[in-house]
Design a protein around this nucleic acid. Sequence first.
DNA 1: ACGCTATCAGACAGGTCTGTCTACTATCAA
DNA 2: TTGATAGTAGACAGACCTGTCTGATAGCGT
Lengths: 191, 191
Amino acid sequence: MTSSPARDRILDTAFRLFYARGIRAVGVDLIISESGVAKATFYKHFPAKDELVLAYLDRVDVIWTGQLHAAAEAAGPEPADQLVGLFDALGTACRREGYRGCAFINAAAEAAPGTAIHTRTVVHKQSVLAWLRDLAARAGADDPDALARTLALLLDGGLSDGALAADPEAASAAKLAATHLVSAAVPRAAG
Amino acid sequence: MTSSPARDRILDTAFRLFYARGIRAVGVDLIISESGVAKATFYKHFPAKDELVLAYLDRVDVIWTGQLHAAAEAAGPEPADQLVGLFDALGTACRREGYRGCAFINAAAEAAPGTAIHTRTVVHKQSVLAWLRDLAARAGADDPDALARTLALLLDGGLSDGALAADPEAASAAKLAATHLVSAAVPRAAG
DNA sequence: ACGCTATCAGACAGGTCTGTCTACTATCAA
DNA sequence: TTGATAGTAGACAGACCTGTCTGATAGCGT
């Protein structure tokens, strides 16, 4: 029950449609018909639409966190380099066809504060922030908290602006700014 | 027709409800009953809901742009100081009760790319960016484009993160980072 | 053969959404 | 007095929403 072909198909379809069109804009009937399952099957796996939305957010969290970590590690073993390298994940994401910004920020825009969905987005952002803080501390930053917060701002700003197409170069501007901020914050910058 | 007590009441109510709950989450029936107008009056002033949404976005644009300019000017006559001072508008906004992030980013999350509503959000972000670019050029930045883009990232990141409550100090972190970035980018920093 | 489980197909209920339409009222100017 | 204008009140249509329910089918272990 935690996994089945029908459930996977539903989640795949929801992932695609929710991200592309927004959560409220996509009805369960559309997800059901596009994923080719019966209505009863849908409601067996996800007793309410909101539970599907949470499963969608969990999947986005796994994917995005994975891309962030991979980009960081690709920059080498030094935490200071990783803090800059992770911005490559932003560049890759923005360039992808159908890019529509951060799924969490988008979901939060549609959910009322205090709901399970809204809370899930807050938890996600806090876990990214905690990771950045850890990296900043290991990089030997003077003020790891401040550096992590600033980089999180840059990351989320890039995620938002890329979606609004206000600037196709948002990702590289973010990485460049991150380079400056990291080397200013870390006494003996690595690399 | 361009202005009337009934029209103002509708727009006031829409402003409050759209921002607090999201655009799709608020039906015209609710706006009609809360603003105390008749349905026919509503549709006389706004022949379709989307036109009300555009009027709402225009109002947000006037208010937010005004706050940004006011905060910048309060920092003094030097463009370099203004580029940092404008972040005070972010701090004020984030601290406000019922703060839910950037109305434009939120609207873009609900609207399909290519629609009038989505386009309006892009235009807004571009006009803020153009203003920043002008300020950066007048401040004598080495690369006004890059500085403006980076500050826009910080601003939008602060707008998003403040909404997700991931960090109550987002606004001050943004201002601090702006201070560093501006003085690094402007040969002879003012102030 | 039997029963269990997962699935499919689709009708249905009850609510909400946008937008149209009819009918009545109040104000104000000519 | 007459007529234009802006407004109120609310029924209505047609689409869409979530979620429930009935009934049929297919595979699988015993």
